[in-house]
């Protein structure tokens, strides 16, 4: 019946559910929850504004765009941030080019951008041909996205999602165009590349706060508060583990390897 080997993982997951739901309830009851200004998110509107002034398009990449495997949360959050970006583009009447590597994400991205233009009553400005499926393969997709960036002379390059080696290819192509760049990925190997090339880089879990940052809705802010509680739990576990290892006890390690599969 219940997989005992995963009981610790299950308990942590239940704690996470409770922390987030408690955060939402706390926020709904009127307790003030604030979220700090994340420069990368603030800069998206500035980047769209700059592109509008220059009369050049904004390029948005959803990364590898996996939504049925590891990396799905990043892709879904990327679509969330795409919705906010499309909102700005619809408001300022700026062209938005979206390149997708995953066909499922491509279809969702098209509806997300269309929805933003519809909401602003500027459906006639929505260009479905600007939402492009490039390729499922890593380097052909990068080559095509780089070509699009070069030919369309983009003024801003936004990269949110799961990126691997293609991250540097895309970022360097945009550097050559002197485009404003904002990048975010959870792949620690690619973070240095974004730091070297982008004007703004979101680190760690900052990308996942995108929805709460833009909406400022108490429900979403409360959920981020709950996430911070989970972080505190992890810090506590790390400190406990370090302390136990220092005094020569591997009891926490034993528990995790037995029940935390």
């Amino acid at each position: 019946m219940f997989n005992v080997e995963r009981s610790f993982t299950f308990a942590v997951l239940v704690f996470m559910f409770i922390a987030i739901l408690y955060g939402i309830r706390r926020s709904k009851s009127g307790k003030d929850v604030t979220i700090r200004a994340i420069p990368g998110f603030v800069a998206i509107e500035e980047a769209v504004g700059r592109a509008t002034e220059m009369g050049r398009p904004v390029h948005y990449s959803t990364g590898s765009g996996v939504i049925t495997a590891v990396g799905a949360p990043e892709s879904l959050v990327s679509l969330d941030i795409l919705a906010a970006t499309a909102n700005f583009c619809a408001r300022y009447d700026c062209d938005l080019i979206v390149t997708n590597r995953n066909p499922v994400v491509h279809t969702i991205a098209e509806s997300v951008v269309r929805e933003a233009y519809l909401r602003h009553g500027t459906a006639e400005n929505f260009k479905p041909e600007n939402i492009r499926f490039v390729s499922e393969l890593q380097f052909p997709a990068a080559a095509q996205a780089m070509g699009i960036m070069e030919r369309e002379k983009i003024a801003a390059n936004l990269m949110f999602g799961n990126f691997a080696a293609e991250a540097l290819l895309l970022a360097e192509a945009a550097v050559g165009l002197e485009a404003v760049q904002i990048g975010a990925t959870t792949n620690v190997l690619q973070v240095p590349n974004f730091v070297a090339c982008c004007d703004y880089t979101l680190l760690g879990d900052e990308m996942f706060a995108g929805g709460a940052f833009y909406s400022r809705a108490p429900v979403r802010l409360g959920a981020v508060w709950g996430q911070d509680i989970i972080k505190l739990l992890c810090i506590g576990l790390l400190a406990l583990g370090a302390l136990l290892q220092t005094v020569g006890s591997d009891s926490l390690w034993q528990i995790l390897s037995k029940y935390g599969r």
């Binding site: 997951l13 959050v77 795409l82 997300v112 995108g210 959920a223 989970i230």
Partner: peptide, 20 residues
């Protein structure tokens, strides 16, 4: 942590940006 948290938020319907 961010990925798990956002997955929970999507599951309970708090994050709906992917729906436009």
């Amino acid at each position: 942590i961010g990925a798990i948290s956002v997955s929970i938020r999507i599951l309970v319907g708090i994050e709906r940006g992917y729906l436009g």
